[in-house]
């Protein structure tokens, strides 16, 4: 079943096309990795998917997925680094889309947040301050918040930026588990080609336009992929 289909999506700022005529489909259960260099339009595409920017051309359609059911894991902002908030405060804020205009969280949301913290193994740090956590723990907290918002789709924007190799491996493992055992669809924007190939079942390689979209196995056969892998081996 298709969750998202993008057809000929073009998004631009300031008269420049950041995303040029990109098409792809995201099926339920997919683990799609969006790769490409800086300035290849990955982040802009994410903003388009989240509805933060309207595409100038083309269409993004959701099927069986409300636009507010995307579990977004944004890149960390400067504001968050010294933000006084407990882990539980951050996690439960993912339930906000369930409340509509109602002002306070009910028992249901509190239980949901508790369950997600349990699932991601952060229950014992729930009273700690977000700013005192390690980078890996912070990502777990944000992941728990995203899962509070949705169980259908996780959209991760450069999730391992700034993490050390151990935390990076742990986070990839965790996301892969959520994808395989819970059937949560994953869309990950990444610089890291190796792990994109290792974990993703589909690859979207962007160079403003679509340079490649298809299964990981097919991607490995392309010249572009071999060049990029080869270029690095020679480093």
């Amino acid at each position: 079943m298709k969750l998202i289909s993008c057809e000929g999506v073009t998004i631009g700022y300031d008269g420049q096309r950041a995303v040029n005529n990109v098409s792809f489909d995201l099926e339920q259960g997919d683990y799609l990795c969006v790769v490409g260099e800086n300035g290849s339009g990955k982040s802009t595409l994410v903003k388009g998917l989240l509805g933060l920017i309207k595409p100038q051309e083309g269409s993004i359609t959701f099927d069986g997925l409300a636009p507010n059911e995307i579990g977004y894991l944004p890149q960390q902002t400067v504001i968050q680094r010294d933000f006084p908030a407990s882990v539980s405060e951050v996690v439960i804020s993912g339930c906000l889309n369930r409340r509509g205009l109602l002002p306070f969280y009910s028992r249901l949301e509190k239980e949901r947040a508790a369950a997600k913290m349990e699932q991601l193994n952060i229950t014992d740090i729930r009273k700690k301050s977000y700013r005192d956590l390690s980078g890996g723990q912070q990502q777990r907290v944000l992941l728990a918040r995203a899962l509070c918002a949705t169980e259908k789709l996780l959209l991760l924007d450069e999730p391992v930026a700034g993490l050390d190799p151990m935390m990076t491996a742990e986070l990839y493992q965790l996301v892969a588990e959520l994808n395989q055992s819970q059937g949560i669809t994953v869309l990950m924007v990444s610089h890291d080609l190796d792990s994109a190939i290792q974990y993703g079942n589909k690859i979207l390689h962007m160079k403003t336009a679509t340079a490649f979209f298809g299964s990981t196995a097919d991607y490995l056969k392309t010249e572009m992929c071999q060049q990029m892998m080869g270029a690095r081996k020679n480093d």
């Binding site: 507010n68 969280y105 944000l142 918040r145």
Partner: peptide
Amino acid sequence: VLFYNKIFAVTFDESFTRATGT
């Protein structure tokens, strides 16, 4: 007081809050 939870969410992470439909 009425918008406390929303004010928290918008203060902590505006893009996430927007993305989840607030």
